[in-house]
Amino acid sequence: MLQQSIKSYIQQDLQTQYLLHLADNALILSHRNSQWCGHGPILEQDIALTNIALDQLGQARNLYQYAALLITEKTGIATTEDQLAYLRDVGEFKNCLLAELPNGDWGQTVLRNFLMGSYQFFLYQELQQSAIGQLKAIAEKSIKEITYHVRWSADWVLRLGDGTAESKGRMVQALELLWAYTGEMLEPCDYELPFIATQSSFIKAAWEAKIASVFSEASLVHPTNEWMQSGGKKGIHTEHLGYLLAEMQFLQRAYPGLEW
């Protein structure tokens, strides 16, 4: 467990919460993508998706390291990226629900990456103008990677949407499942507002336009449900995250306080 004083500090500092939110999105998505490593349908694509998982892990680390630095400075308690990743429980994770859903088949995985990657693309584009120097630098580095992730996943959405009857059917099914989780990304919560308040409606519009253009080329139509699942950003997760963390954090929890 994180020390109580670190927890309390996080609870009252919006910037740290925001950084953790961004980092958690990247880490959890990386975790899911990394589960494909060694099990992909095509060797070249196994390598490509692992690359994406590595990029996302790198982004998460940059953000956790920055958050850890701020916490250390403010509380005087030495805090590390690993403490933030390994010692928080489900309720303290702030990633969007979309990131934590199981991989499903290859279609569901590439679709999730496309939906979330496109959002991250427009978000990080805005964060490149951030007044916070370190966040700006992380955004500048990440955007190059995310540009590739979006291109790669959009190509796959297109291939599968425009492939066979089976692939099309699977994409329709995946879309039905994932769509209800897209709204959460686009509605900023309290800790996001100070950082992207004015840009959030632009991000949403740009995301919708990007999705619409790729879907139309892939002849896919997204569901029109109004109701969106949310809660992840505030620590109310799906049942899946608990299992994910149990696996990810196992060594740190079984043998507390050791260096690896």
Partner: peptide
């Protein structure tokens, strides 16, 4: 599990 993926990619191409 990748059969349908490879097939779809070929058909799309």
């Amino acid at each position: 599990n990748g059969d349908w993926v490879r097939e779809a990619a070929t058909v799309h191409a």
